[in-house]
């Protein structure tokens, strides 16, 4: 009769993950989204270069560059506040809430301001079907707004978890990465679409 000996190696202190799974998943998702925006911006640039009657086309309103600059500042400030929130979170979780709240509030301001801007543009005659200019504007800026709303929902869920005292570092980091993407892509869209 033979006996088989099995040796088990018990790892008491495993190596921590290089990148938390939630963050890695979010990064992979955002890579595909980045390519989506890149494709849209490339198509917009080609259409704009080929516009024979100028851009915006005659009869179409000019995009509100100055007002949107204020909105851009609000979004960038929101991103900066989230960086502060992340640093405070690493030291003392209880003091994070005001920073996260301010960041979400500024992000919500950005989305609402854009909604108001859209209502004004529609009244001036810029619609999805009024011209290529309108089509590209609502498609690109609309998709960005959709991402902003989704990221705000994620940050809102993080806020709730923080309020209950169950927010994990990796969950918070994934939400942050999403919001930084929304904030980071916006200046490029502002420069290419509004400029």
């Amino acid at each position: 009769m033979t006996s088989r000996t099995t040796s088990l190696r018990v790892v008491t202190n495993p190596r921590p993950p290089v990148v938390p799974s939630a963050v890695l998943g979010m990064l992979l998702f955002l890579f595909t989204e980045l390519m989506l925006f890149a494709g849209l911006i490339s198509a917009h640039s080609i259409a704009r270069a080929g516009a024979l009657l100028g851009w915006p086309p005659p009869g179409q309103p000019r995009l509100p560059l100055e007002e949107t600059a204020l909105n851009t500042a609000a979004l960038l400030l929101s991103g900066a506040l989230l960086i502060v929130a992340q640093r405070v979170f690493a030291r003392d979780k209880r003091r994070t809430k005001p920073w996260l709240t301010a960041s979400i509030a500024l992000g919500a301001f950005f989305v609402i301001f854009q909604g108001v801007e859209w209502v004004g543009l529609i009244r001036e005659g810029l619609t999805l079907t009024s011209s290529t200019h309108g089509g590209f504007f609502y498609l690109i800026i609309g998709i960005h707004a959709l991402h902003a709303v989704a990221a705000l929902i994620v940050l809102g869920m993080n806020w709730l978890r923080l309020h209950r005292g169950i927010l994990a570092q990796s969950t918070f980091a994934a939400g942050q990465v999403f919001w930084y993407f929304v904030v980071g892509v916006w200046p490029i869209l502002y420069w290419r679409v509004y400029g």
């Binding site: 890579f31 980045l34 494709g39 198509a43 640039s45 080929g50």
Partner: peptide
């Protein structure tokens, strides 16, 4: 669909820039 075959230099430059951008970004 977007001014294909156009001889306009601006359009051609845009195509080249977009191709380089979309190739290098990923």
């Amino acid at each position: 669909v977007c001014s294909g075959g156009d001889d306009d230099v601006k359009v051609k430059d845009s195509y080249v820039a977009a191709t380089i951008f979309m190739s290098l970004l990923p």
